[in-house]
Nucleic acid binder design. Structure first.
Lengths: 331, 331
DNA sequence: GATGGGTGAGAGAGCGCTCTCTCACGAGAG
DNA sequence: CTCTCGTGAGAGAGCGCTCTCTCACCCATC
């Protein structure tokens, strides 16, 4: 006993399959009483259109791939940015009745699989969250004839519209806050330099330090708490006299705070700390973290709109969202 | 200029469409030289099977829905359990070439949408992450003729195989640890009582307290940091003399630690704290958190295997995974 | 009263694939 | 040398839907 087909609905309503199809798809060129008859039949039979059959002829799938490329296990699970972005994009797509196909690509094998999948026409569009510079996916996907947008500026110059936040400007604002509060020796824990966010936030730091005649003191982390803790210990060895540190994301700032505590430095009295992202956890550190807020959910939603607009020939200019300094107790 | 079809491949290789199909689908009843000719044609044309056409006849979609039901915005984004589970399930499904369709259902509207989607035959199976007791989805989905498995025991008794961790046993171990270290007045911050994890962890707490002749002191949170902070303040008001608190998850424990700090209590000297989950952040609290670890990734992977087994008539007995006490400095 | 245009419904051709059924052919047995 | 059987390849039906094309019918117009 299989599922009812449109044929069955048409038969029950006493109309042709074509008319039933028109009603199901909401066309208006159907007389009201016929329309009602069809809808009643749909209801009685519990009819639901077969998506495969529909896709076959319409050449649409009504689903969108959300590709998260090269997610380090820890980072993906721990950094709430991912889940926030995924959630927001998902809700935005739900609203227009598109489904989200989630693809996590970490190995060359899985990159190839993703590429084949997209090329195979399983989805109508792709949202790419790719942070890593060496990632082959942005260029690979941009060659396909599927609309692609990116969350964050792609690391390699490639013709993909994207939505990003103002990483440089945010970093500048954070470091300027430290300068303004009289800090002299301002270090930074930078993010990975093969990621745009890592690069840009370091650029912002350097710009302000240069303009205010201070020396850069740089350690590099990989956006995990652990790397933040390690980098902070190294900075304290390199320059025991530092009195502030700008950390490229909150997760690393959490690690840095722990290292400072273990080294006996008081925050903010001895060392001021500014983070980046304003994750929820930033309110619960000891002391609460001064950081730069950027609208992750809005960025993801904007990305969805960009993608949907693209399929309708809309504009494909990058969207850059602003960043806001949130002052708490750490600086 | 559309994509090459199997017809084109067959023509190029000089065989029938049926033979080309056999080769593409890896059947062995094809002579080697013909097989090679077809594969060469596939390669030259860049042929990829049309998934809609294939699904239409095979009645399979090779994709699995991952339904996260009723995720409070904050909890979903902040609790790393979700991303860990999603990641693990996704990787496990990738390995068998199944795609993950992610559906977040939070409102009655979206519940209906999910149900229609599943009933519509878009997917071959469903993995349900539903924590809320009043959630209509478990029973709704179990009525469909699609295999369904659940991450965590469903709150309402319903015939869905599931994988869960030993919440009761874990809570007992945590509280026993507090008893063994000589704590007298042991409170708890319980999780929401319409969630199984909330109920079971409270049950474990109560059992041990009863067995050791202590009085229960209970506040209830909703698994967010904020609610943990609020609950802790309330407990301190209710019983200023408490010397330990068992918190039903780490996120709430983070909030509780903050409230204890603000109230001037030292941890663990004045008040010992035990959490639950062992999220990464537990290592970075001040002081680091003693907690109960359970294997989220393994639980998700086991859920995938359960689902895949189900479609092949495998067993559908619930799987319960063990929990382990991780002693750090907070208790 | 004949003609023209507009509207609503049906007929039927595919979309690209899988799979059953059929058939051709060659080898081995009698 | 004929018959049987097994193996490998082709023919063709159909999966369930959309959409174009066609046509019937009604009303307004001259």
């Amino acid at each position: 006993m299989r599922r009812p087909t449109l044929e069955a609905v048409a038969a029950r309503a006493g109309v042709s399959r074509a008319t039933a199809s028109r009603v199901v798809n909401g066309q208006t060129t159907v007389a009201p009483h016929i329309r009602d008859a069809v809808l009643r039949a749909v209801d009685e039979l519990g009819y639901l259109p077969n998506p495969a059959a529909r896709s076959l002829v319409t050449q649409r799938t009504d689903s969108i791939a959300l590709v998260v490329s090269e997610p380090g296990t820890r980072v993906f699970s721990e950094d709430p940015m991912f889940s926030t972005a995924i959630r927001s994009a998902s809700m935005e797509l739900d609203a227009v009745n598109k489904q989200v196909v989630l693809m996590l690509a970490s190995s060359p094998t899985s990159h190839a699989r993703v590429e084949r999948y997209i090329a195979g026409g399983h989805v109508d569009g792709v949202m790419l969250i790719s942070m890593h510079g060496a990632d082959p996916l942005p260029s690979a996907l941009s060659r396909l004839r599927v609309p692609v947008v990116s969350y964050g500026r792609p690391a390699v110059p490639v013709d993909i519209p994207y939505v990003d936040n103002d990483n440089v400007g945010g970093a500048e604002a954070g470091v300027r806050h430290l300068v303004a509060s009289g800090r002299r020796r301002i270090a930074t824990i930078a993010g990975p330099q093969d990621m745009i966010a890592g690069q840009d936030r370091l650029t912002g730091y350097r710009t302000v330090l240069r303009d205010s005649d201070r020396r850069s003191i740089v350690a590099v982390g990989d956006f995990t708490r652990e790397s933040g803790a390690v980098a902070m210990r190294q900075l304290l060895r390199d320059d025991p006299g530092l009195d502030a540190v700008f950390v490229a994301n909150d997760l690393m700032a959490v690690g840095a705070l722990q290292s400072l505590r273990q080294a006996g430095r008081r925050v903010p009295d001895d060392v001021a700390v500014v983070g980046f992202d304003d994750i929820e956890a930033a309110k619960y550190t000891e002391p609460p973290l001064t950081t730069l807020r950027h609208p992750v959910a809005e960025q993801a939603a904007a990305m969805v709109r960009l993608l949907l607009g693209l399929s309708e020939g809309g504009p494909s200019a990058p969207v850059i969202l602003p960043t806001e300094l949130v002052v708490r107790e750490s600086a």
